[in-house]
Each structure stands twice: as C-alpha cells, then as structure tokens.
Amino acid sequence: MSTASSRSAAAVLQARNLRKQFGAVTAAGDISVGIERLSVTGLIGSNGAGKTTFVNMITGYLKPDSGTIEFDGRDITTLTPRAITRLGIARSFQIPQLYDALSVEENILVALGTAARNGQLGPATAPRGQASRLARQQEEQALAQILSQFQLRDYRVRLARVLPQGVRKALDIALAMVARPQVLLLDEPTSGVSSEEKFAIMDMIMTALAQQGVTTLFVEHDMEVVSRYAQRVLAFYDGRVIADGEPKRVLQDDDVRRYVVGMSHAAPAGARSHA
C-alpha cells in the first residue's frame, strides 16, 4: 500500500480512501491508489473482489460512500459519467456497450460528432459540428484512422448487432478512444474472446493507445495477458488492494497466489505458451 502514496506525486489519477458498501458486501474498503501519467496498470482479482466497482467509481457510475477521486488535481468524486468523460477519462465495458442497430461506421460517427461538439478533437474542428467542408474532411480522416487502428475496416457497414465478439470488444474500445481521452479504463478487454485471439486484440489495443499517449488501466483475469502488457499490477481482494507493484513481483506474492491467481480461472503465469 505504501507504494501507492509514494507514486502520488506524478499521479494523473489519485483515489484516496475510497469506500463503497452494498448491504453486507464491501465492494471497496479504503482504497488509495495513485496512477502515473502514461502508465499501463492491470487490475486483477477474483469476481466480486472490487475491480469493476473501482472502475465504476472512477468513471462516475457509482458514487463512493466516502473518499475522493482526483483527476489532474481536480476533484471528480461527485461528477456524472458525462462530465468525467468530457474531462478526458473514458472507459470500455465488460459487456460491450454499442449501438446495435447502427453500422460500425455510424457507431464511430456518433462518437466523433459528440467529441467534436465537446471540443475534444482540437480547435480546428467546427465546434458546433457545422457541416462545413473542413469539418467533413476531418471527420472522414478521423473515421478512417479509427477504423484502421482498431482493424474495423472490413466491418465498416456491418450492423454492430451481428459482429463477432472480438470485433465488438474492439469497437467498444474504439468508441471510448474517439474523444482522445487522457485516461482509459478497460473493463476486461479480452473477456469472451478466444484465447488465440486475446493477444492479437491486446496488441492492437496497446499499439493504438501508445500512439495516442493514453494512461491505461485494464481489468483482466488472464495472468498471462497481465504480465505481458501491464507495467504495474493492482491485486484486489475483498474490496481492498492486497498487492501493488511490478507484475512479476505481484504475481509471486503469497496472498495474491492464494486469493487471486489460485482462485481465479486463469492459469498461473507461464503455464501456457504462446508464440
């Protein structure tokens, strides 16, 4: 736990003493974590350990019972998801939240339009989304870029409803990335994706994020994925962070092995091989 406060000096995101209770269940019991700018952090823990609650509190879906959350030194504890998104914190979802009746392209255009209205695409874009030629060109460019970054080009005119799971995940994350957030929280980016696809998807996501310079947190059950992509790991158990540090060290930690790795459905690190 001491590591968290020592990092807080350079933290872009700082949670202090977060508590959240659902009846008798402690979803968060005094969580204090600082997240460094441009870092990649993995959140691990068995189901119900408090990972998603943590993500939900950061992004405003749940209000903590007590404690504060700061983003760039600004208190965002009581803000709505909308306000938090506008400030530059975006998220993806365990179950992809898409516009199922719209095509992939339309999904992204909706997001682009909103980002433009909120002034998140830079000053050159027409702020009220006037259909000027310039704005239109920029929109086309931005669309093409997102489609290629997230390997969605082949699905451009397909309805989101009929996409394969891996593509749904990619689109969900693409929608979060459209507004060029500073911080991105990914809730189980590889859940429901076959193990062969996992690394391909993570490679694609991480490449895209690195290009844009985004501070990333991701919830993940597969320890192999965690150790490969995270620079730092937070292990959750019973609403608390029981270990925090480099992946190698955290995954070797006795408590983590007992409460997280052993109990989760993920194989121990290194048990499976991949090319």
């Binding site: 992004t59 709505t80 998801p81 909308r82 998104t85 506008r86 975006a90 998220r91 939240q97 898409l98 516009y99 199922d100 009746a101 719209l102 339309e106 255009l109 909706v110 997001a111 682009l112 339009g113 909103t114 980002a115 433009a116 209205r117 909120n118 998140q120 989304g129 259909a131 929608l175 979060a176 459209v178 507004a179």
Partner: peptide
C-alpha cells in the same frame, strides 16, 4: 446529419454509452 441529430438512434439503442461518450 448533425452530431446532435445523429444521437437519436444512439439514444434509442444505448443511453449508457451516449452518456459515456460525453453527450447529454
């Protein structure tokens, strides 16, 4: 065809995502 107008089917489909895009 404006960003605000395009939100219509998006709201019908998924309000949660609309809010998490930063739109009201």
């Amino acid at each position: 065809r404006t960003p605000l107008g395009r939100l219509a089917p998006a709201i019908r489909d998924n309000e949660l995502r609309v809010e998490y895009m930063g739109a009201s």
